[in-house]
């Protein structure tokens, strides 16, 4: 499965809820304000394990728009819209955490 998260983990619990129910083969794509969780910050530990396993992506355009491209945590992969589409195709059912 592909899980998309579009809210900042500082404002909403969407990322935490996603992590509560994600299985071992699913990946997370951070979009819109969700990319705030891709930056190195006080909430980085939430995603560090999954990122190490190469299962966390962030949408480049949303990262750039927020001026945080230099702060993206290690092991989080940046994708463009075409990459977004590839993830949907590869991982089947998509769940959005809004």
């Amino acid at each position: 499965m592909l899980h998309t998260v579009n809210k900042s983990s500082f404002e909403r619990n969407s990322l935490q809820s996603c992590l509560n129910t994600i299985d071992d083969t699913s990946v997370i794509l951070l979009i819109e304000d969700g990319v705030i969780s891709a930056a190195n910050n006080a909430n980085s530990s939430m995603l560090s394990d999954l990122a190490t396993q190469g299962r966390v992506y962030a949408l480049q355009g949303d990262v750039d728009a927020r001026g945080i491209s230099s702060k993206v945590a290690d092991n989080i992969k940046l994708v463009d819209y075409a990459g977004f589409v590839d993830l949907v195709v590869e991982h089947g059912t998509a769940v959005s955490w809004v």
Partner: peptide
């Protein structure tokens, strides 16, 4: 819930 979700064709949030 994780198992039930991964069994779905479509999840609407």
């Amino acid at each position: 819930l994780t198992k039930i979700m991964s069994d779905q064709d479509v999840c609407l949030s």
